[in-house]
Design a protein around this nucleic acid. Structure first.
Length: 489
RNA sequence: GGUCGGUUUACCGAGUGGCUAGGUAGCGGUCUGCAAAACCGUUUACGGCGGUUCGAAUCCGCCACCGACCUCCA
């Protein structure tokens, strides 16, 4: 299976030609959410990015197994909560079972992912369902001599590991620097070195989520689940591991160390990281008051939002930026995206009604070529969109009669739209989605005919009234040379 | 403090040496009873200072500013 698909590998810091280990099969693991609160804007970025990657690999006819974990055992907090488990903290506040909290926010996540039109991963394993695998992995690392037990907790021995392997190769960290810069945190006294990390932690008495293990009743360290689950479902070595750039260190670095220590080889061939988002140029944080959940965004229910933005507007907006760039959310930018998306979708509708000519004045094969090139170049969705808008121009011009397209080219354009707009970018026409289209079409035809009668009699008051009232019902009427066209707002 | 990344026209956002993406907004025009849409044309650029080069937004150096990570996080 030949392709020209290149992807930026964080490990080599270069774009590399993508060659799967066992073509046509591709294994892809992406760090999923910790389900302890409603999904927010930040969750949308990796979801859309890796959905697009999944979709493109599938388009290239690879058989992809896409695994995205659900972290539901909670991670330790190091702030004022003194290491209290996040999920437990929330559970006490809301007087719910920890798993009840998990379920609630998991449902919320699943719903938002559907809103954004992301495809389900092949497997969505939960950390709580893989405690045994995690314990086995800790045993393996202990057997290989890269971990040590202290008071029922097990820590990874980074210094020993670094004598044989390269700790820091992904994030560019140097061990000496880490040693010099690591803060003094609570509960670090058990470790040999401050940069060691927990594989298993003994539970304190108030810790609710706990499982038996050979070392103590406790819980797994926070890097362990990804190593255990990726190995279980994708093998010791697999093709792609994705996640946000913020996870590069320490999370992914530790994953590499854990798997390498256990299996003797690096687990991942291509590390892919999406960049972060900002809001009006600032990092999103609760303390800055610009923390926006996806539901708030879809409903316009936040002081910073001038209006609601549909899931597809968000998706389109994210795709207008390259996944490795930061992307800045603002009302102005989102409104621009909304208009752009409408233009694209409208052209898709116009395409269906286009009348063929005997010759073509546009080069559709070149357009295909350009679209492929854009995606092959490290998923350059903004460039792809710019080419698609070239297609939009052809379509609208052909509709206006200033450009000509043969029946074959029109057919080719339809295929191109289906492939790139819908299958690969995963956009969805929200306006035309749904309900009783036939009936609506018939009704609109009647109304338009009545209005035409009024216009023929030059009863402009009547014709304008019809148009205005349709507008207040959310229907836009446009007069053409002969007849009229309509669309939903 | 350390490591890494960024600073592009009104806004968003591509672009790694010459060919000035794209979307949105603005302006002018075509069309039109009016309006909208569409189409055509068009305005405002590459943080600062130096260097390399016939030629730099693009390469190098310094400075300024912004951000990420180093600590739970997408």
């Amino acid at each position: 299976m030949d392709n020209n698909f290149t992807i930026y590998n964080s490990l080599s810091r270069k774009k590399e030609l993508f060659k799967p280990l066992h073509a046509p099969f591709v294994g892809m693991y992406v760090c999923g959410p910790t389900v302890y609160s409603h999904p927010h804007l930040g969750h949308a970025r990796p979801a859309v990015t890796f959905d697009m990657l999944f979709r493109y690999l599938t388009y290239l006819e690879y058989k992809v197994r896409y695994v995205r974990n659900i972290t539901d055992v909670g991670h330790l907090e190091n702030d004022a909560d003194e290491g209290e488990d996040k999920i437990e903290k929330k559970a006490r506040l809301e007087h719910l079972e920890p798993m009840e909290v998990v379920q609630k926010y998991l449902n919320s996540f699943e719903k938002n992912m559907q809103d954004l039109n992301t495809l389900h991963p092949s497997i969505e394993p939960r950390a709580s369902g893989h405690i045994i695998e995690q314990i086995e992995l800790v045993k393996e690392i202990l057997e290989k001599g890269y971990a040590y037990e202290v008071n029922g907790s097990v820590y990874f021995d980074v210094l020993k590991y670094s004598k044989k392997y390269d700790y820091g190769k992904l994030s560019g960290r140097v061990l000496e620097d880490l040693q010099a810069n690591t803060r003094n945190l609570e509960g670090q006294d058990e470790k040999k070195n401050p940069f060691d990390f927990a594989l298993w932690k003994k539970a304190t008495p108030e810790h609710l989520m706990r499982w038996p293990s050979p070392w103590s009743v406790g819980f797994p360290g926070w890097h362990l689940e990804c190593s255990a689950m990726s190995t279980k479902y994708l093998g010791d070595v697999f093709d792609i591991h994705g996640g946000g750039m913020d996870l590069l260190f320490p999370h992914h670095e530790c994953e590499i160390a854990q798997s390498t220590a256990a299996k003797g080889k690096a687990p991942v061939r291509y590390w892919v990281h999406n960049n972060m988002i900002t809001i009006d140029g600032q990092k999103m944080a609760r303390s800055l008051g610009n923390f926006i959940t996806l539901d708030q965004l879809f409903k316009g229910d936040h002081p910073l939002l001038q209006q609601a933005y549909t899931p597809m507007t968000i998706r389109f907006f994210l795709l207008q930026a390259h996944y490795r760039s930061t992307v800045d959310f603002s009302n102005e930018a989102l409104q621009a995206a909304e208009k752009g998306l409408q233009k694209l979708m409208k052209a898709g509708e116009t395409l269906k009604k286009l009348k063929p000519s005997l010759t073509s004045t546009a080069d559709i094969p070149a357009l295909w070529e350009n679209c492929h090139e854009a995606m092959d170049d490290d998923l350059n969705s903004p460039i792809l969109l710019s080419h698609l808008f070239e297609g939009v121009k052809y379509i609208n011009s052909a509709n206006d009669g200033t450009e000509e397209l043969t029946a074959a080219d029109i057919e080719s354009l339809k295929k191109l739209f289906n492939a790139f707009v819908f299958d690969i970018l995963g956009l969805r026409d929200e306006a035309s989605a749904g309900n009783d289209e036939k009936l609506t079409d018939d009704l609109m035809e009647i109304i338009i005919n009545l209005r035409q009668d009024a216009k023929n009699k030059k009863e402009w008051g009547t014709s304008d009234k019809i148009r205005d009232e349709l507008k207040s019902a959310g229907i836009i009427l446009k007069d053409l040379k002969d007849g009229a066209d309509w669309s939903k707002e």
